[in-house]
Computed example of a mutant assay.
Amino acid sequence: MSFKTRDATSTDASHVDRLLRSLADFEGVSDDLTFTLADIERALSESGQFHALVAECQGQVAGCVTYTWDFAIWSGGTILRVDDLIVDEKYRGVGVGTALMRALAERALERGAKMRWEVEPSNENALKFYARLGVTLRNKIVARWSPTKG
Rank of each mutant, 00 (worst) to 15 (best):
L19W: 02
Q49Y: 12
D25C: 06
S30Y: 04
H51Y: 15
H51S: 15
D32L: 14
S45K: 15
T36V: 03
E56F: 05
A24S: 06
G59V: 03
F26G: 10
V29K: 00
V61Y: 01
Q49F: 11
G28T: 07
A43F: 05
I40C: 09
A55Y: 02
V61S: 00
E56P: 02
T34C: 13
G28F: 04
L37S: 09
L53T: 05
R21W: 08
A55W: 01
A52E: 09
G28K: 09
E46H: 14
E41Q: 15
V29E: 01
L23P: 00
D31W: 07
V54L: 06
S47M: 11
D25F: 08
F50Y: 15
V54D: 01
S45W: 05
G59A: 08
S47N: 15
Q49W: 09
V54K: 01
G28E: 09
L20Y: 06
E56I: 04
L20F: 10
G28Y: 09
D39Q: 04
H51N: 15
S30G: 15
E46Y: 12
A24V: 01
A43M: 11
Q49K: 13
G59Q: 09
E27P: 02
A43H: 08
A43C: 10
F50N: 08
I40D: 02
S47Q: 13
E41A: 07
D32N: 13
G48N: 10
Q58D: 15
L33C: 14
R21Q: 11
R42P: 03
G28W: 06
L23V: 04
F26R: 12
E56S: 06
R42N: 13
Q49P: 02
